[in-house]
Design a protein around this nucleic acid. Structure first.
Lengths: 327, 327
DNA sequence: ACCGGTTGTGGAACCGGTTACACAGATAAG
DNA sequence: CTTATCTGTGTAACCGGTTCCACAACCGGT
């Protein structure tokens, strides 16, 4: 690997001049510039980012912390983040937290040890010391913290919409899947749904789930129809569990949406491919990722900002697991 | 951020001693050790990995290059890689290549600029100069290159199995989805399937697809049933396209598996949740990721290896989009 | 001819670690 | 008692960049 000194020697100048030429800071004579350029080409020189980062105390790296890339909602976020970062020459150190505080802390620590310039985190503990003591910008993604930069969607409203729509379409014995206790957005969705159900005087059954994993989702679905066999409407806590519920309902010979309606949450790519296609509350995941990255970059560059807590719209996406609304 | 000099000053020793104590190299008196430990705690010191990396010319970072994290097959790989790396204290710089040579090259370059110790890449161009000139270990994942360390599965055999099983279950007018031209495993699956079909004297129709995206998958599915309406068996190039085919078949009122059988490839998590659940050729994605990471780590640590090209088994996973085999 | 500003360049300190080397005291062996 | 070895520590060079500062040549204006 060629160093800046090799280039300097070959071009017959000092390292300072090479550095200035590369970074476009300070004066460099046209002839010198050409010499350096050819030297760089001949040696296939590329600057060592580590050395740069050490002196400047800031790299071109950012940290991205997500609960679990295996949950199809997160790759969308990740991709949005990545694309935006990529366009601004930032790179990403990535980690899965599994919603685990220790793992999360460990990652954040290695992020700072590597001089990252900023962090995007999807965490349940935005108020923890780990973040408070960080002296680089952090953007919370899919999660909120008061007064902190964040990009999230209105889960409570999403829950309300789901309930409103399922009621409007005739379900009266609704079961709501509560979602993992420690995951804020899941709880907010749940609250929103229950709230709206109550406002309409409709009582509901509840199934408490403790993860979003594909394998366990089937279990909740079975439990649901075992405990509440006459359910005629299910509000799931995300699309994965909704898909499992749908699967189980059909397995039991129920017709969807005629006998049971199902509404999911997220609108992951697979939802439109299910049979019947899943009605769901859409979060614009990819855009959320991009927006979070954009926000972080602004923070990094100290740009003035109108708002740093960005709420994204949640939309009712009507497909085939719900009936037509009665006017 | 506290530096090693701060710690040294506080503990009343030199930086060399602190460094030795932290790294467990050389002698350190028990009393001195305790002093340093408390100093570290009081200052909340963590070593700057960038400085380390600069001197040692190797970091604790590895590069992971995948085509598109949005394709549900890759998060499984990524997760496998991440978990194994995590357990060995390595971190990951991540990038999506979109199967694009330039983007790929750009990422590899920034990987080396950041002193990564190794790279895991899922690329269509394993023989390109980018990799040949790399003087750090590379493991190709989901792709092969002769004599290079790689972890992949036997796509051709997978294709053969898919064809064999769909024939055994009675399909005679089979359509094979070819998959993107530049993606090796997709072509191998295709070849395997066509080969086996020919061996059984069964001719087949072919639909050429050019991506694995969710949005376009629907288009290929429509085209398939438009051009070959009497198809009674579909061998898809992966589970996403299979899901789209399944969706379209049902939309057209065909019964699956009675009228049309469908076999996918990959066995992504969603496959078992589809209705009917998708029969597919399984690749052990998570394990592949883990294995690749393990292999890379061995390479990094210069461990002697029996084999560096690791082929993973591909298994026929029978679910409900195929009929029972006739004996 | 003199002065101030612009242009162009190099030397050297610095970022925060690691490690080669020197050295001193203690201990063990002969 | 001498010498070799082990223990424990500090000084300073080094990794590969960036930047401060000094300095020289050149320019135009007075």
């Amino acid at each position: 690997m060629a160093t800046i000194r090799d280039v300097a020697k070959r071009a017959g100048v000092s390292v300072a001049t090479v550095s200035r030429m590369i970074n476009g800071t300070g004066y460099v004579h046209e002839d010198t510039r050409r010499n350096i350029e050819t030297a760089i080409k001949e040696l296939q020189y590329t600057p060592n980012e580590v050395a740069r980062s050490l002196y400047k105390r800031r790299s071109k790296l950012t940290g991205l912390l997500l609960p679990d890339i295996t949950n199809p909602f997160f790759p969308e976020l990740a991709r949005g983040v990545e694309d935006e970062m990529q366009e601004h020459e930032f790179r990403i150190i990535f980690g899965n937290s599994d919603e685990d505080r220790d793992k999360e802390q460990e990652y954040i620590q290695t992020f700072v040890q590597n001089n990252v310039v900023g962090v995007i985190a999807s965490t349940n503990y935005p108020d923890s010391d780990v973040y408070r003591n960080l002296n680089i910008p952090v953007v919370f993604l899919d999660r909120t913290a008061d007064n902190s930069p964040s990009v999230y969607s209105d889960s409570r409203e999403g829950g309300r919409i789901a309930a409103r729509e399922i009621i409007a379409r005739g379900s009266r014995r609704v079961t709501v899947l509560q979602g993992p206790k420690h995951i804020r957005p899941a709880q907010d969705r749940f609250k929103g749904a229950v709230e709206m159900l109550r406002e309409h005087g409709i009582s509901c059954s509840v199934i408490q789930t403790s993860s979003f994993s594909f394998t366990e989702a089937g279990t909740w679905a079975e439990q649901l129809f075992r405990e509440y066999p006459d359910t005629d409407g299910v509000i799931a806590s995300n699309d994965i569990t909704a898909a499992a519920v749908l699967h189980e309902a059909l397995r039991l010979g129920k017709r969807v949406p005629e006998d049971v309606q199902v509404i999911g949450f997220d609108d992951i790519p697979l939802s439109r491919i299910l049979n019947p296609a899943l009605t769901t509350i859409r979060q614009p995941a990819y855009d959320m990722g991009r927006t979070a990255a954009r926000l972080l970059i602004s923070l990094i560059e100290n740009k003035p900002l109108e708002q740093t807590a960005i709420q994204m719209p949640v939309t009712f996406t009507e497909r085939d697991t719900t009936r037509k609304a009665v006017e």
